[in-house]
């Protein structure tokens, strides 16, 4: 199509653009620009007061060659991305699937019980449960059962802190992905199962692999995206229950590192470089997820 034809086309659709505008305006200002802007800012030294100074690749060099804490934070983030994320993903699906097998009245109650934690910011309670003295719930149970004799410093001992944070992260992770799975499972036509029974599918595990999973692909993608977001940007849980910084940086994620340089030291150039690394990692994870799920169907 030539240019004048295109302009005509755009004019014809001005009503569409007009209706899309409110969304696009704020979407561009608060999502598109921040993501794109992080790239040029990452090549500068920028403290929010002076004009940003171009310093080439220095931020990235420092990140990967001199910043030992960043390397640590990559390892911790990988724990969230490789262990917590997939584990929570499977948990979301299994629980949604289990719940879906039950009668409707039970179904509703379990939905609320499993979804409620994702809404709860009850870090105080977690601090009390894992408190390092005898008054901590977890310690008191262990002492009563005779498993330990002295209280364990769950939140400050570098051996345990990451494990505790991962557990709490799993606890709050049954969110939108879990809801998407529940909805998707409910949406599968009963006819498929009936047809499957005729074909000789005899138990629910066969049903799961031959009927349920193949028809859940779009939801697997959606929930996967949500899981990538929450596991790659994990950090709030650690900051709130294990303190900032955590002992020995044992629960220090890339997100926490960016927070440190962005909001505490105001080194925005360096913080942007960290964010760029994270953006790229998330994009790659998303592409991988797409590839894996598309291959299997």
């Amino acid at each position: 199509m030539n240019i004048s034809g295109k302009i005509k086309e755009i004019k014809r659709c001005r009503e569409c653009y007009f209706m899309l505008m409110p969304f696009m305006l704020f979407f561009i200002i608060f999502t598109v620009i921040p993501v794109i802007m992080s790239v040029p800012v990452a090549f500068t030294d920028f403290n929010m007061i002076e004009y940003p100074k171009f310093i080439g690749l220095d931020n990235f060099k420092n990140l990967f060659l001199n910043d030992k804490i960043f390397i640590k934070s990559i390892r911790v983030t990988l724990v969230f991305a490789v262990v917590t994320g997939p584990l929570s993903y499977i948990l979301c699906f299994m629980l949604a699937w289990f719940i879906n097998q039950l009668p409707k009245s039970l179904h509703n109650i379990f939905m609320i019980i499993f979804y409620a934690p994702s809404m709860a910011n009850i870090y105080t309670i977690w601090q009390l449960i894992f408190s390092g003295d005898r008054y901590g719930y977890f310690n008191s149970i262990l002492i009563n059962l005779g498993i330990t004799f002295s209280p364990v410093q769950w939140l400050t001992d570098s051996r345990y802190v990451l494990g505790v944070v991962v557990a709490v992260q799993l606890w709050i992770s049954l969110g939108a992905g879990f809801l998407a799975f529940s909805a998707g499972l409910k949406n599968i036509d009963v006819l498929y199962y009936e047809a499957g029974a005729v074909e000789g599918i005899s138990n629910r595990w066969q049903e799961l692999f031959y009927i349920t999973l193949p028809s859940m692909k779009p939801y697997l993608l959606f929930a996967g995206v949500i899981q990538i977001v929450s596991s790659f940007t994990a950090g709030a849980v650690a900051q709130n229950i294990a303190g900032f910084p955590s002992t020995d940086y044992k629960a220090h994620t890339i997100m926490t590192h960016a927070y440190d340089y962005g909001w505490i030291r105001y080194e925005m150039g360096y913080a942007s470089a960290i964010c760029v690394v994270l953006f790229i990692a998330m994009y790659i994870a998303d592409r991988l997820l797409n590839k894996v799920l598309n291959q299997e169907s």
Binding site: F30, T31, V225, V229, T233, C275, L278, F279, M282, Y283
Partner: peptide, 8 residues
């Protein structure tokens, strides 16, 4: 969808 939340 990837870049919502605290990452930005």
């Amino acid at each position: 969808l990837l870049y919502q939340s605290n990452v930005i």
